[in-house]
């Protein structure tokens, strides 16, 4: 799920950036530093949408760098266990398939794919029901439920399932 939240960060700024454009420099450095990063607590920082307030700077002993506490609003993407969302299938193999929902990767193991769906190898590997009516392959859109998350230093990785009511393929690229 995407959220709009306020985060705080202490920004260190070199004295050469001081002057009229101090605030602009601070903001562009902030964007460069945090946009695209990921933390386990807040998820992926997608975009900064505004600066709430810039606190008083504090000169660091010995270096001349100044630390400013900056409060900023941003859009983050944070997946939760138990959350249901839509995702695009990116890779299919006999172990299961990978899907992407925005910046996050989700793996659905073949144990968590309905039992009536069989793996079919070939140049377009896919999972298909015995009557061929439902097919999961690269670029399919699926609705899945996140059942576990693993947090790395720079990434969040999810495990999902489509073995439940109202989950599964919502759009098959071959039929549209």
């Amino acid at each position: 799920m995407f959220f709009h939240i306020v985060l705080e960060r202490n920004m260190q700024l070199h004295p050469r950036y001081f002057g009229r454009n101090l605030r602009d420099n601070l903001v562009s450095k902030l964007m460069k530093d945090v946009e695209g990063t990921c933390s386990g607590k807040h998820g992926f920082v997608v975009a900064i949408t505004g600066i709430e307030n810039v606190g008083k700077g504090l000169i660091r002993d010995g270096t001349g760098f100044v630390t400013f506490p900056v409060k900023y609003q941003c859009v983050v993407f944070r997946p939760f266990k138990g959350e249901i969302l839509e995702a695009v299938v990116t890779m299919v193999n006999k172990m299961g398939f990978f899907a992407e929902a925005g910046p996050v990767q989700i793996f659905v193991s073949n144990h968590l794919i309905p039992d009536d769906m069989e793996f079919q190898s070939g140049d377009m590997p896919n999972y298909t029901t015995s009557d061929g009516s439902v097919k999961i392959q690269k670029d399919s859109e699926v609705r899945l439920k996140i059942i576990g998350t693993r947090v790395d230093a720079t990434e969040i990785f999810c495990i999902g399932t489509i073995k439940d009511d109202f989950l599964g393929v919502i759009n098959d690229p071959t039929t549209t």
Binding site: E35, G36, V45, V46, F77, E86, V88, E100, G102, P103
Partner: peptide
């Protein structure tokens, strides 16, 4: 960032 790009594609699609 890649995160921005992927998010934009995703929300446009869904």
């Amino acid at each position: 960032s890649q995160v921005f790009e992927k998010s934009l594609q995703y929300v446009k699609r869904f």
